[in-house]
Design a protein around this nucleic acid. Structure first.
Length: 225
DNA sequence: AGCTGATCATTG
DNA sequence: CAATGATCAGCT
């Protein structure tokens, strides 16, 4: 386990130092076992990055680097640089939303400063041979914040009005609400249309792949110009 | 081929 | 059960 970075610069230097390395090389340097596949180790790459970059305990409900206000996100991409998956952000609150606005929401705070670490992770590539791309620090632009805000408001309105079970992945332009649970039998409290509590599948906020692709493209453009 | 709903491990 | 880390896999 690497020590906690003391500054953004130190964190960025570290992340730049693992660019180009394979997950196998990083795992070996940390004495971490490499799984054959991620079917039963879905968060493995993310935990590996936390370890090598010196993030604090991943079990807490706070940023990976609390003192820096930075959230760490791995981003699986193909060889062409396109995201392979949507990006999970956080569990979506289904109760206690009275008075919450986008500005005061947990998700806005969580997305305020993100260190993205792309990993070329096509399924055909063995885990150990997957290569870390160029990490980049992102803070939402006004336009991006506006897009996120709109989607968040639409989804939150539906939750508050008791329509959580009518929300599908296709809702939202850049942010979506999808199941986030051990399985489809998991339950958490929500309110129905009549304001009565009932149990439903836990949901999470995810960034759509199209959105994270725009972030990657921005970064590439900065490099070229 | 991309997307959406389902799922896996671990910790407190 | 909730929150951390996400990817799997079937369907369109």
């Amino acid at each position: 386990m690497t020590a906690i970075p003391q500054s953004i610069n130190e964190l960025m230097l570290r992340s730049q130092n693992i660019a180009g390395l394979t997950l196998g090389e990083i795992a070996n340097s940390q004495n971490i076992q490499i799984p054959k596949d991620l079917k039963k180790n879905k968060g493995w790459a993310g935990l590996l990055l936390e370890n090598v970059l010196g993030a604090s305990a991943s079990t807490k409900a706070e940023p990976d680097f609390p003192h820096l206000g930075v959230e760490l996100k791995s981003l699986p991409i193909n060889r062409q640089g396109k995201p392979l998956e949507s990006t999970f952000v956080c569990v979506a609150p289904l109760v206690g939303l009275t008075g919450t606005t986008w500005q005061t929401s947990y998700i806005k705070h969580k997305l305020s400063k993100v260190l993205w670490v792309p990993i070329i992770a096509e399924r055909e590539i063995p885990i150990a041979e997957r290569i870390v791309g160029t990490p980049f620090l992102w803070q939402p632009s006004m336009q991006e914040d506006q897009l996120l805000s709109q989607d968040w408001q639409e989804l939150t309105d539906m939750i508050v009005l008791g329509n959580v079970e009518n929300i599908q992945g296709r809702h939202g332009q850049v942010l979506q609400l999808r199941p986030k649970a051990a399985n489809s039998q998991a339950k958490t409290k929500a309110y129905d249309k009549h304001g009565r509590p009932f149990m439903t599948l836990p949901r999470g906020f995810y960034l759509k792949a199209h959105f994270t692709q725009q972030l990657l493209n921005q970064y590439l453009n900065i490099n070229i110009s």
